[in-house]
Amino acid sequence: MSLKIALFGITRDIVGTSVIELPAPAPATVGELLAEMRRQYPALGELRSCAVAVNNEYANADQPLHTVDEIALIPPVAGG
């Protein structure tokens, strides 16, 4: 199973692309995904926060991930 992760704002700047594909074996949960992304891109760990969205909703660390899911990293938001 591979995963595609959408990147926005400063996470796109850090990773250098707006979509990154993690080849199989990809992380199985949100928590594993965050750990893997921070391992590959240590600057992600310096952010005030970094959430993961699955299908347009904020996801908990134990949520499982599937190839069909729309997954995104969500750095600190600053609308308004």
Partner: peptide
Amino acid sequence: IDTLKQVVTIWKREEYEDGTEWVAAHP
């Protein structure tokens, strides 16, 4: 408006005379 600023996935990059910065990104 207060809750929008906390949860809605919009990001703001400020442009200064000498560069830009993503607002609230770092502690």
